[in-house]
Amino acid sequence: MAYTALFKSSIGKKLLMGLTGLFLITFLLVHASINAMIWFQDGGVTFNKWAHFMGSNLIIRTMEWGLFFGLILHVVDGLMLYAQNRAARPVKYAYNRAGDNSSWYSRSMALLGTLILLFLILHLAHFWVKTRITGIEKYGLDTENQENLFAVMQEVFRSGLVVAIYVAGCFSLFWHLLHGFKSAFQSLGLNHVKYNETIAVIGIAFSIIVPFVFAMMPISMHFGLVR
């Protein structure tokens, strides 16, 4: 059977959703860990060092393309699912109590995903475009003579509005992950009494911890908790 037929099928589409979702989850983990170095209270020296490594290492720069590719697949597949699923019920119920049998966030993955995507565009404009394209020379060097991404963060998060948008983005991510994490395993066919509980617990923990760590970055920058 051809792979194109596989990915056109409903099961193929959910497989793709799950695989790209898990891939993006691993990215979140790496991103959150490296960015957590802003809390070293060393004027961003350690953080800048890692940021420079991530931005200059050839292997990582190549993986960045893989990341964009995975993200685009996830978004396109998701939007396609959304459109097809809307079309599968042309006339809606006049009265529907969907909340009685499922959680609102599991039913709102497309909406939450779109919010995350909008946030992501802003986020890329804030940092990725500056570090990879326009350059951040004007922000000067840190005490160890490294490019100062830390200073870029400090400036971006001076605005309360930006901080609020980032925190809202983290909330969307939280709910998206709350359904997406365990859902990915089900899509891969991994559903078994032996490990379901473990997946559920890790999923909830991940969905809370990672967005929380992300949300604390703009907050602690804004209120000058990191120096």
Binding site: K8, S10, K14, Q84, N85, A87, N101, S102, S106, Q186
Partner: peptide, 13 residues
């Protein structure tokens, strides 16, 4: 798939 059912997104309803 040919019958026009939607795609499962593991909602569980």
């Amino acid at each position: 798939d040919a019958e026009g059912f939607g795609n499962c997104t593991n909602i569980g309803a």
